[in-house]
């Protein structure tokens, strides 16, 4: 083989070696790239799985508490001013005194609920007004006595006047 032919073989071999190194470099680069993408996909899957577990537990919790939440909502649902007044008047009837509604106003609101303040007054014997106080305190509603004034009508009277301010939790503002 001539010198030129031998040199051509060397050049061809060199080119092939260069190509082989290029292929190797390409595979190394692509492997690294795939590895990086796989790590990212694994991280995403871990996050997705955690989110899936979280949303799954939320769904289960929401499903398991559905009845309890309905019962919870029922405490404050359908409580309009008429029904609240009716409750107070019924308490008065049980205690044996006539309840007068002095005022109805909006109270301080909670985050998810509104409040209404109903002021009532009544007159009766000490036992009657004390009974009324006890009944108003345990009305079948989300309510509490925020203020009351109990006063004997006069020094010799057996009658007592009571003014009670009751705060109710309601769904909607009056």
């Amino acid at each position: 083989m001539s010198m030129i032919g031998k040199t051509s073989v060397t050049i061809a071999t060199g080119a092939f070696a260069l190509f082989s190194v290029g292929v190797f470099a390409f595979i190394v680069f692509e492997t690294n790239n795939e590895n990086r993408l796989r790590d990212a996909a694994m991280a995403t899957q871990a996050q997705s799985s955690a989110r899936d577990a979280y949303t799954g537990s939320l769904r289960i919790l929401a499903r398991d508490t559905a009845e309890s939440r309905l019962a919870l909502r029922a405490i404050t649902a359908d409580r309009d001013v008429v029904s609240l007044i009716q409750l107070l008047e019924d308490a008065g009837a049980i205690a044996g005194v006539k309840v007068f509604i002095d005022a109805v106003s909006s109270g301080e609101d909670e985050e998810v609920l509104q409040s209404a303040v109903v002021s009532i007054s009544a007159t009766g014997s000490f036992n009657q007004v004390n009974h009324l106080l006890s009944l108003v305190e345990v009305l079948p509603a989300a309510s509490s006595i925020t203020h009351f004034e109990l006063e004997r009508e006069n020094a010799t009277s057996q009658n007592w006047n009571v003014q009670i301010r009751v705060r109710f939790l309601v769904e909607d503002e009056f």
């Binding site: 909670e110 985050e111 006890s134 305190e137 345990v138 509490s144 705060r167």
Partner: peptide, 24 residues
């Protein structure tokens, strides 16, 4: 959201009812 709403309702109702029986 519904669970947070329920928790807030419980807190509000608990705050209102915690005095029950105190007047008597």
């Amino acid at each position: 959201d519904v669970l947070i709403d329920a928790r807030k309702r419980i807190e509000a109702i608990d705050k209102t009812l915690h005095n029950t029986g105190a007047v008597a």
